[in-house]
Design a protein around this nucleic acid. Structure first.
Length: 618
RNA sequence: GUGCCCGUAGCUCAACUGGAUAGAGCAACAGCCUUCUAAGCCGUAGGUUACAGGUUCGAGUCCUGUCGGGCGCACCA
């Protein structure tokens, strides 16, 4: 509809350019927006206001000229000039009905763009470390990422979903060691699980399980275990703290805005991490590659399979599970680093290799290979993102938790340094949701094992409600997730409201069927019987859907769909309450049934974009 | 301390990328069930868009500052 109006107004502009009212070389973009108030017609444009300056005329006068240059067309019944120079367009009643034909023709595809007609896009989302089950924080990323993928597909793009599996690196080593320690405990070795290990029950399960299947094969004496512990004297963090002059300590402390205790605590934490690194090294040498792999694989395979199934039950299925380890195995990390060394972007300092990200606007240079020879997470990410873009996507979208925002400049820097187009990488940040139950905040921490899992959430509130709730909010908005509300099967819950509207339209047709009413020809009904305010509102909403899908897609905002669905459901419910559809005379009834059917179709199409079901009965 | 995000009705959030009188849902108050599902409908009330300036025909939206909140500022991921 907007397209048709634009075409008409374009002719008027062409005319005015020929008449030299508007400078011929001036680029004119015509924007229509839907009006909020009925008195302002159906559509409005601020065209005259934007052209006032180049045309050197006042907006209202210019609006008169535009209107008089407008070719006559059956689409428009009236044009008003209002306010500071808005041009308000009133649609002809007949023009409102064409949307019904479109919906009947296109069915499940109504509102959707031509498939595969646009960009090839990859959406990477969730990508949580496979160190434990997904929690409700990941749930938002999952719901958003998948809805975004569906939305982009709906808009006509070709979309692939990818999960980047961090199956390499320190966190995985910590996990393997955690399992090993649980295994040792299962063999009655009186040792504690370090506080910075993974403490979830599942880790214990793997350890006990392996104790049964592998017996004493990987056991060790208490003496040997304790001998491999890092003493406080050996800690570089604690040594650094001891040697640090008072004024340096104070300066750093103030720079981070921490109390003395908090700042000292940081060194204690570093000591704990060092101890853990020592433990990891010990485990690797003691167990050997194969032995270590037993614990590593057991944890990785089980957790990954669990995550895959969890997401699948949530309605999220991936095209690709991309392994970080494969980047090492295929030499892609070295290849990328070699290229960066060759271009002088990576240099050596203090035994470590640094990427000169400051050359690309980052705050400081970043380590890619630590002085112990271990590549950092960043090194993998350089290779990963390079690989991503080299796979030929027009656009790669990363859905990240907002705590990673400081990470964006360095990844973009790496792409630029490798000669790739960093514009092709878009990062969308998602705020973690804060859970509430009974008005109380629920805390979360993966390592401590104290969190609500996505699975628990699904079991408690259901996948549909969870998805709807997550997607309802703009991604970068802070979000309060009220469990009690999501769970409630009442009018408080917007998802039920929308699903109920859909179910109601279904029920009307079922009842019609039971009463022996023939509904087979409703698409041929005389739509001109539809002229009440409520019917016009519905028609207008239906007509808006394709524009909405495009707008939501270009802005990566699936939440717009949820608001639209609520509006459409409201209009339908209101119409339903005021109109006895099946009791009307045949011609009227068929027209109203057509409208119902079209609304049902559009509700269904919209729900499918956010990955929520459209039940036929509640 | 410094960088990014945010601040809209009592609560949770929208606002078509700068448009007309800032909108929904909860909660509050008042009405509607011999009816195609009341998991619903109709209405009332609720606002100096954190604050102060600026940009222009026009600002919740853009720029500056202040206040308040979240996140980041590792040879962690």
């Amino acid at each position: 509809m907007k397209d048709q109006l634009q075409a008409l107004f374009n002719q008027a502009i062409k005319q005015l350019k020929a008449d030299q009212v508007i400078p011929a070389e001036h680029e004119v973009s015509i924007q229509f927006e839907r009006t909020r108030q009925k008195e302002h017609g159906d559509f409005a444009t601020n065209l005259a206001m934007t052209l006032a300056k180049p045309a050197r005329r006042n907006p209202r006068e210019l609006a008169e000229l535009i209107v008089s240059a407008l070719p006559s067309d059956g689409l428009i019944t009236k044009v008003d000039i209002a306010g500071p120079g808005f041009i308000n367009v009133f649609l002809a009643q007949d023009a409102r009905y064409s949307v019904l034909n479109s919906i009947f023709e296109q069915g499940d595809r109504y509102g959707l763009g031509e498939p595969n007609s646009k960009q090839k896009i990859m959406v990477e989302f969730v990508s949580a470390n496979p160190t434990g089950p997904l929690h409700v924080g990941h749930g938002r990323g999952a719901a958003y990422g998948d809805a975004l993928a569906r939305l982009l597909t709906a808009a006509g793009n070709t979309v692939e979903r990818e999960y980047y599996v961090n199956d390499a690196g320190r966190q995985m080593d910590i996990l393997a060691v955690s399992v090993w320690i649980r295994y040792l405990q299962a063999h009655d070795l009186p040792i504690d699980l370090p506080s910075n290990c993974y403490k979830g029950d599942y880790v214990n399960d793997y350890g006990e399980d392996l104790a049964k299947t592998h017996g004493q094969a990987h056991a060790i004496s208490l003496e040997a275990y304790n001998r491999a512990s890092l003493s406080r004297d050996q800690s570089s963090a604690l040594t650094e703290l001891k040697a640090m002059p008072e004024e340096v300590f104070e300066k750093q402390r103030k720079a981070l805005n921490l109390s003395v205790d908090e700042f000292t605590e940081k060194f204690e934490k570093r000591f704990l991490e060092e101890s853990l690194d020592t433990r990891i090294e010990f485990a690797k040498t003691h167990l050997g590659d194969e032995g270590f792999e037993v614990f590593f694989k057991r944890a990785l395979d089980s957790i990954l399979e669990d995550i895959r199934q969890d997401l699948s039950e949530f309605g999220v299925d991936y095209d690709t599970w991309f392994s970080e380890r494969s980047l090492f195995d295929e030499g892609k990390i070295n290849k990328a680093l070699d290229q960066l060394k060759a271009s002088g972007d990576v240099y050596e300092k203090g035994g470590a290799w640094w990427f000169k990200t400051t050359d690309y606007g980052d705050e400081k240079d970043r380590v890619v290979i630590r002085d112990n020879g271990q590549p950092t997470y960043f090194a993998s990410d350089i290779a990963y993102h390079a690989d991503k873009l080299e796979r030929g996507f027009d656009l790669a979208i990363n859905v990240w938790g907002s705590d990673h925002h400081g990470y964006i400049p360095r990844v973009k820097a790496s792409l630029e340094a490798l000669g790739l187009d960093q514009e092709k990488l878009k990062v969308v940040l998602v705020q973690f949701a804060v859970l509430y139950r009974g008005g109380e905040k629920i805390g979360m921490s993966t390592r401590s094992g104290d969190f609500v899992t996505l699975r628990e959430l699904r079991e408690e509130v259901g996948s549909d409600a969870a998805r709807f709730f997550y997607v309802q909010r703009k991604s970068e908005q802070h979000m309060d997730f009220d469990l009690d509300l999501a769970k409630s099967q009442s009018k408080d819950n917007p998802m039920y409201y929308v699903q109920y509207a859909h179910a109601r339209t279904c029920r009307i047709f079922k009842t019609a069927d039971m009463r022996g009413i023939d509904t087979s020809a409703i698409s041929q009904a005389d739509f001109s019987r539809l002229k009440s305010d409520q019917e016009n509102i519905l028609l207008s909403l239906l007509q808006r859907f394709p524009e909405l899908v495009q707008a939501a897609a270009t802005n990566y905002e699936p939440h717009q769909i949820t608001y639209y669905l609520r509006d459409l459901a409201t209009a339908l419910q209101s119409y339903y309450a005021a109109t006895k559809i099946l009791d009307a005379d045949v011609a009227q009834r068929n027209a109203m049934l057509a409208l119902c059917s079209a609304t049902r179709q559009t509700l269904r199409n919209g729900l499918s974009i956010i990955g929520v079901g459209a039940p036929e009965s509640m």
